[in-house]
């Protein structure tokens, strides 16, 4: 399958800070590729460079065979962008916003009107077409934000954390829309720090941390890196002494890695059943009050924890 995007050692530096370093990956036509990483990992900077908004410090990327450095305008005609923040005009209606953004992609006349009507129907906002964006809920704004990136039927769609801060129902609708777009042939670069979204949507996943791509492959390929390890997730009281608990857990022979955030403990173990009894005993001895315990098969969270020693949300 031909690559719609090929990133070659893409790097962005700001004085002493390297936001993205030597990023190389490709996206095949018709693929959903997720960049998974915690906040500040370099996901948005990567999208900004690929969409020609930021000039890379070094490296290049080809989109549809066009260089982001030397053929920016050709690249822009091929891509659509759904920014992390709502990039719409609040005092214009949903329809007026879409008409404006469609025109910016050189759509006009009957074709523009039809695309706007179709897109509004697709995101379920036909009835609210003439209402101003400022009157919409967060989820509805997110949907219009996505719609503005779809009007011109881009070959490659960049979606930068499109589900941040919305209700579960709107999130579900957006994930279904992403899958539907992909079925219609749109290639998608999707950034997220939600492991579940990357798992559900992606054909392949790139894990990014501190600006570096630390793992790349299908979900199965990535989870194989951590062998047969399972993840134990325990919730304890908020008053429990987290550093002391982690120190005690790291001494348990069945636990290969342990991390904690707020009152949530995430542990990696090759033998979940055997480890569980030891973990409960250790925590009880350390004075913890266990509220819940979950056992997960190996997943991308496990991979990230395995590779970085931290949970995705740390």
């Amino acid at each position: 399958m031909t690559a719609i995007l090929e990133s070659r050692a893409l790097t962005k530096r700001y004085k002493d800070i390297t936001a993205v370093e030597d990023l190389s990956f490709s996206i095949a036509s018709g693929e959903i590729f997720s960049l998974l990483g915690p906040n500040g990992a370099g996901k948005t900077t990567t999208i900004a460079m690929l969409s020609t908004l930021l000039t890379p410090s070094s490296g290049d990327a080809l989109i549809g065979g066009h260089s982001i450095l030397t053929e920016a305008m050709a690249v822009r005609r091929l891509i659509g962008i759904v920014p992390q923040d709502i990039a719409l005009y609040p005092e214009l209606s949903a329809q007026e916003n879409l008409l404006f953004w469609g025109r910016m992609y050189d759509l006009e006349g009957q074709q523009l009107q039809e695309r706007v009507a179709q897109t509004l129907a697709r995101i379920g906002l036909t009835e609210r077409a003439k209402d101003r964006i400022s009157t919409f809920s967060g989820g509805m704004k997110r949907r219009v934000n996505i719609a503005a990136g779809l009007l011109h039927h881009p070959r490659l769609l960049f979606m930068d954390e499109p589900t941040v801060g919305i209700d579960p129902q709107s999130r579900r609708a957006i994930l279904d829309l992403v899958k539907e777009l992909n079925r219609e042939g749109t290639s998608i670069l999707y950034t997220t720090h939600y492991m579940e979204e990357a798992q559900e949507l992606s054909h392949r996943v790139g894990i990014i941390d501190h600006g570096k791509l630390i793992a790349l492959g299908t979900q199965a390929e990535l989870t194989r890196q951590v062998g047969e390890n399972s993840t134990l997730t325990l919730t304890v009281d908020e008053q429990d002494p987290m550093p002391a608990l982690l120190e005690a857990l790291r001494a348990v022979p069945e636990i290969s890695q342990a991390s904690g955030q707020a009152n949530l403990l995430t542990l990696i173990t090759p033998r979940a059943e055997a480890a569980l009894a030891a973990v409960v005993t250790t925590l009880s001895n350390a004075g913890a009050h266990i509220r819940s315990v979950e056992v997960h098969e190996p997943n991308l969270e496990t991979v990230f924890l395995h590779l970085t020693g931290r949970a995705l949300r740390d």
């Binding site: 900004a48 020609t52 305008m73 822009r76 891509i79 920014p83 923040d85 990039a87 050189d106 503005a148």
Partner: peptide
């Protein structure tokens, strides 16, 4: 507000 970035990412 990000609308400038969105404009700049379009063929404009």
């Amino acid at each position: 507000a990000g609308t400038h970035a969105r404009l700049a990412a379009s063929p404009t």
